[in-house]
Amino acid sequence: MSARNTQKLLAEGLGTALLLAVVIGSGIMAERLAGGNVAIALLANTAATVGGLYVLIEVFGPISGAHFNPAVSLVMAARGELARGLLLPYVLVQLLGAMAGAWLAHAMFDLSLLQCAGKLRGGQGQWIAEAVATFGLLLVILRAPAGRASALVAAYIGAAYWFTASTSFANPAAVFGRMFSDSFAGIAPASAPGFVLAQLLGAGVAMLVARLLSPLRPSTPPLAAGTEQTQKA
């Protein structure tokens, strides 16, 4: 593997790990400080995720596209903006990074590193919400003006935390990582398949709609526009 591709995989793995550390760590902190007020805890979790996501896309976008998300990588590969040979390695490092991010969050808060989430998240409304959240995320990425995707993606995810019933995971890697955290941001393994299937459906519909809206943009780093491109959590 070339040095350039190694850099891309390192950026994807590290970026995904840091993203999950932000999502899970801020959830733990928010729950501890909110005194049982779930709305305040979610607001704090949202604010941290928005800021962290924006920074991570800006930092890693020029290297790997800052996907941090298998659904994004799949769409980019389908569009020819990510080499097909890199799709599986991207997904693998994203999943490993997500799990490492959960462990990092636990370590920072003196919690047991190895956990299994017990929070069930399922049902038709949750699945529709995940399809909608992922559809919107991919549409923002595909239609964002060049150079503005990082801010738009972060803003969209912040909004989707609140307008979707699922609080907008919109990312199979985030689902995977959050299975390993029995915390505010966790999701039980039994709930994961429904979330991932809904996310992939939403991503596929977004790609089709983007094609219908107008001719495809010239291949640009989706997130640099998440950048050579990418990007929930």
Rank of each mutant, 00 (worst) to 15 (best):
A21C: 12
A21T: 07
V22I: 05
I24C: 09
G25Q: 08
S26W: 09
G27D: 07
A34S: 10
G35M: 01
G36D: 14
I40A: 07
A48C: 11
T49H: 08
V55G: 06
L56T: 02
L56H: 03
S64N: 03
G65Q: 12
P70S: 14
L74S: 12
V75N: 00
G80A: 10
L82W: 00
A83P: 14
G85I: 02
L87F: 02
P89H: 02
V91S: 04
Q94I: 00
L95G: 14
L96N: 08
A98E: 08
G101P: 10
W103K: 08
L104E: 09
A107D: 12
D110M: 05
S112M: 08
S112K: 13
L113Q: 13
L120H: 10
F135I: 04
L137Y: 09
I141L: 04
A149M: 01
S150R: 15
S150Q: 14
L152C: 02
G158P: 03
W162R: 07
S168W: 08
F169M: 13
F169H: 06
A170L: 05
N171F: 11
A173S: 04
F176D: 09
M179P: 02
S181A: 08
S183G: 00
S183R: 12
G186C: 14
G186D: 03
A190P: 05
S191E: 05
G194P: 00
V196W: 02
L197G: 12
L201E: 06
G202E: 10
A203W: 11
V205W: 03
A206D: 14
M207R: 14
S214A: 11
L216Y: 07
T227P: 11
E228L: 15
T230W: 12
K232L: 01
